[in-house]
Amino acid sequence: MENILAQSAVRPQATAATLAATAQPVIQLRDIEKVYQTKTIETVALNRVNLTIHKGEFVSIMGPSGCGKSTLLSIIGLLDEPTSGVIELDGRPVQSYSDKELAALRNQKIGFVFQSYHLINDLSVLDNVELPLLYRSGVGGRERRERAYAALDKVGLSARTNHFPSQLSGGQRQRVAIARALAGNPEIILADEPTGNLDSVMGEEIMDLLLGLNRQEGTTIVMVTHDEQQAHKTQRLIRFFDGSQVQ
């Protein structure tokens, strides 16, 4: 019941989406505030953000540097807790999950692509891509290996499986990071400027990859980008300014 109420509260954004109104909301943010408190200053990174993301949507987020985009992604990705407000995942408030359940949710439902890749330098490309499956029970070593190979194949890096991250270019590292997100086969991909460090051709390729994933597999994608062209290829664009949604 609460679910329906919540949906109607955020209706203005939902109608703005090109998506059918019948689609289920996977992520709902209500009155999310995030304040960073340091000794000297208080930074309001997010200011009363309301957002609903439906199953199968491809949403892009734009805004100037420091406006809170990465903060928003880490809250959606259950990596950070808001100072106030409610997050619901599949209609269930996240506060009610235990640490263990949250870890399982991150592992199974969500795939991250970070602004700065975040590969483990002491692990080979293949081992890096296997990581999310390592934290999933019931996936054997062989299956891990196969799925990691398949994911690397999708990003065109199957020839570099035994390299270490330091031996790769920035674009290749970002593709490894994407392969890592794909390997877990998540319902939601949260991508923080996935093409920020790539040239336009490579950026185009990554974008096509994400679009294909969204269309063919129905993966819900939330992507932060600085590229207007890319943003317009997605179904919905949300603009941020100083911690607030402006559009």
């Binding site: 990596l79 263990k100 592992n107 199974q108 975040h118």
Partner: peptide, 16 residues
């Protein structure tokens, strides 16, 4: 630290 954060993001529990 970054590795720890990454592992948490990929599904490791604090105890893990």
């Amino acid at each position: 630290k970054a590795e720890i954060g990454l592992r948490r993001a990929l599904g490791a529990t604090g105890r893990g």
